[in-house]
């Protein structure tokens, strides 16, 4: 078609600027997303630190499974809570999304903006959760490798962010401008 240069764009720096701006100015509304992640990561980290104490009362061959199940619970609760709050956060922005699309934003731009925002929120939550979990774990006399746990906490938080943000972001990104502008929240 020879039209490949006629493509609307969203430079990455601009996307980051918009996301950080949005987070800063809407912190009150999106705190719930951060809290969901924070609580779950704190739960997971503290359990890991306390695993040796917990394990002492469980038959040795069941310890691994038991800890895995606890981690899994933390993961599912975090993913469900985060997805729920992200769905609400994104639904509140349908008008904004419709507006951006009517001025040239493409689906991928909307998806990118929402995913970046969700990832930043979950990383913040993951780090806060790590600190709180560390405090609780050590406070109750647990022990473990803090560096490994930091990696695990952030890794799990990012994974939760990716999983729970992709569906609502995808759904919002592919809405037509009219649909997005018509929604009353």
């Amino acid at each position: 078609m020879g039209k490949s240069e006629e493509k609307t764009v969203l430079p990455f720096g601009e996307a980051i600027y918009m996301v950080l701006h949005s987070i800063r100015l809407r912190l009150g509304r999106i705190l719930v997303v951060i809290i969901a992640i924070t609580a779950s990561i704190a739960y997971m980290v503290s359990l890991d630190l306390l695993s040796r104490i917990l394990a002492s009362s469980i038959p040795p061959n069941g310890v691994g499974i038991y800890l895995f199940l606890l981690d899994l619970t933390a993961f599912i609760v975090a993913a469900a809570g985060t997805m729920n709050s992200l769905l609400i956060m994104i639904a509140e922005r349908y008008h904004e999304i419709g507006t951006m699309k009517s001025f040239g934003a493409r689906d991928i731009h909307i998806f990118e903006l929402l995913m970046i925002e969700a990832l930043i929120l979950t990383i913040i939550g993951g780090f806060l959760g790590y600190l709180i979990g560390l405090g609780i774990g050590y406070g109750l006399g647990g022990s473990g490798d803090p560096v490994f746990l930091l990696g695990k906490a952030i890794g799990v938080a990012v994974l939760i962010g990716l999983i729970s943000a992709s569906y609502p972001s995808y759904q919002a990104a592919r809405m037509s401008p009219v649909e997005a502008l018509r929604v009353e929240v």
Binding site: K3, K7, H21, L25, T99, M100
Partner: peptide
């Protein structure tokens, strides 16, 4: 297609809506 439509919306048409629809954080 989606690309050309986005380009058209950005370049050829300027919308004004009843509810203003400005981005509140900008």
């Amino acid at each position: 297609d989606a690309y050309e439509l986005a380009w058209l919306r950005a370049n050829t048409i300027g919308y004004i809506f009843q509810t203003f629809n400005l981005i509140p954080v900008l």
